[in-house]
Design a protein around this nucleic acid. Structure first.
Lengths: 115, 115
DNA sequence: CCGGAATATTCCCCAAAGTGCATATTATGT
DNA sequence: ACATAATATGCACTTTGGGGAATATTCCGG
């Protein structure tokens, strides 16, 4: 039997790398290499956490040529949405996430996979 | 260095037993044996999860004669409060938690430790 | 068909968590 | 002091998670 949605969500939110990823994806869909660049974390680590999030239905992915684009679900459950709102207002202003945003802007313009 | 509050909170919320406990404590302070009765879980399990929650500053405790009374913090952080609100509106109506509430009412009246 | 870029997966290690069972601790009443 | 109730802790075990390093896969261009 499947685990309750809310437990999955909380487990997903209990890791800083996953939080950083969700924070980025809340801004826009991104491919792995962009996330990797922004986070400054090794590629396998990023891929694994993306897989973890997808396994728990927190994100979706679509292959686009050589790249895999990840994004928040088209219809995110109420519970997930609520928690993202909560994060937005109480957590995402912290420096870790704001630094990520700065790097995202820089990386985003020179994007090869955004064709 | 200490872990960020929000990560602690999410880790605490990612377990059904701890959620059930928090749900009960949101109603009123309770001693271990009442929680144990309501949850129908073995006493060491309950005690350990209470210890976990306390270690992460999600609850407080005070010894009262033979009993230890647990309760939500007198001044719960904004983040915790927000999440409890979210749970209240989206999760706590589920049957697991409602069944707990029923048992709580039954148990509560015949309380010995509420002197 | 081949080389290279982007991504996913595997293996290994270690730490943390969750649980059952048994035992220790603490406080109470006699 | 002792028995007992309430609670906490310890031990053993299993699972999960997180991370690094290496390797596999997938897809493109030539």
């Amino acid at each position: 039997m499947m685990e309750e949605e809310y437990l999955s969500v909380y487990k997903c939110l209990g890791d800083i790398t996953r939080l950083r990823i969700l924070h980025l994806l809340q801004r826009e869909p991104l491919c792995v290499c962009h996330i990797q660049d922004v986070l400054g974390e090794p590629q396998p680590k990023v891929s694994k956490q993306l897989a973890y999030l997808k396994r728990h239905a927190m994100i979706e992915s679509m292959r686009h040529a050589n790249w895999t684009i990840y994004r928040l679900p088209s219809e995110p459950g109420t519970f997930l949405s609520q928690n993202l709102k909560c994060l937005e207002s109480l957590v995402f202003h912290e420096s870790v996430f704001q630094e990520d945003l700065k790097r995202l802007k820089r990386v985003d313009t020179s994007a090869a996979c955004l064709s």
